[in-house]
């Protein structure tokens, strides 16, 4: 556990500067837009831009970071040290996954915090629609959690693609891209094939769970998870496969 935590700290150390820089830029940009709006230079609708821009950019940034955290190990020749450590491959991958999730959390908090801080006063119409602060916090948390789940699975596919690409000699970029496509296809197949096994699961009434009826009593939002169970299982399997390949085969080919 101690070794694993050290790995996490090492990866967090690596992501500290870029994350702080990006957070700072975002907050400065939001403050600048708020300043312009307050003094009437820009229309208040421009505040949407200040929120939309980081919201659109951060996912791309995080995808790049998922790739970059592994790439830098090869580029800086630290991958040999990493392989020599007495920790299993899956823990190395998990450490990177955890540090990237922390990065996601920080950027999410910066976006939400910055929006509340600089544009909260301009969202009166939005506040009048929601029933209470607890409703906002509850649903905000689940938006965060859903984003985290999607991003985590994306990291796992990128890690698999990257590690497999290091097992072939040439055109590693293309191989990584192709492995990503094949892995997505396999996961989709697993989801389709395993769905009948999980038909017995109950339909989840998300409109009750997320208290959407406080917005409008007519909202119905239901999810039957049978079709996604195979996807989750395949993603978990890919995670351990990546760790295994990283631990046993990558070094031989470098």
């Amino acid at each position: 556990m101690k070794r694993f935590l050290k790995l996490v700290l090492k990866d967090l150390e690596g992501s500290r500067l870029p994350t702080l820089f990006l957070s700072g830029i975002t907050l400065v940009f939001m403050a600048f837009v708020r300043y312009k709006v307050s003094f009437g230079s820009w229309h208040s609708q421009m505040s949407v831009l200040a929120v939309a821009l980081p919201t659109a950019f951060f996912p791309l940034w995080l995808i790049w970071r998922s790739f970059q955290t592994l790439r830098s190990e090869w580029r800086e020749d630290t991958v040999y040290t990493l392989l020599a450590l007495p920790v299993p491959g899956w823990q190395v991958m998990l450490a990177k996954l955890v540090s990237l999730c922390v990065e996601y959390s920080v950027l999410f908090a910066v976006t939400v915090g910055g929006t509340s801080l600089f544009f909260g006063g301009l969202l009166d119409e939005l506040w009048s629609m929601v029933s209470s602060l607890s409703w906002v916090v509850w649903n905000g948390f689940w938006v965060y959690a859903a984003g985290l789940a999607v991003y985590s699975s994306l990291i796992i596919y990128i890690q698999l693609a990257f590690v497999v690409s290091k097992m072939v000699g040439k055109v590693q970029g293309l191989v990584a891209l192709w492995v990503w496509v094949l892995a997505s296809w396999l996961a989709d197949k697993a989801a389709v094939l395993l769905a009948p096994l999980f038909r017995w699961l109950p339909t989840l009434r998300l409109h009750e769970f997320l208290r959407l009826n406080e917005l409008d009593s007519g909202i119905v939002f239901e999810w039957h998870p049978a079709g996604q169970i195979g996807l989750v299982l395949a993603t978990v399997a890919f995670f351990f496969l990546t760790g295994y390949l990283f631990e046993h085969y990558v070094e031989i080919n470098e």
Partner: peptide, 11 residues
């Protein structure tokens, strides 16, 4: 579909 989202005309 595994997800159903609908707003009934209750307003």
């Amino acid at each position: 579909p595994s997800v159903r989202f609908q707003v009934e005309p209750s307003r």
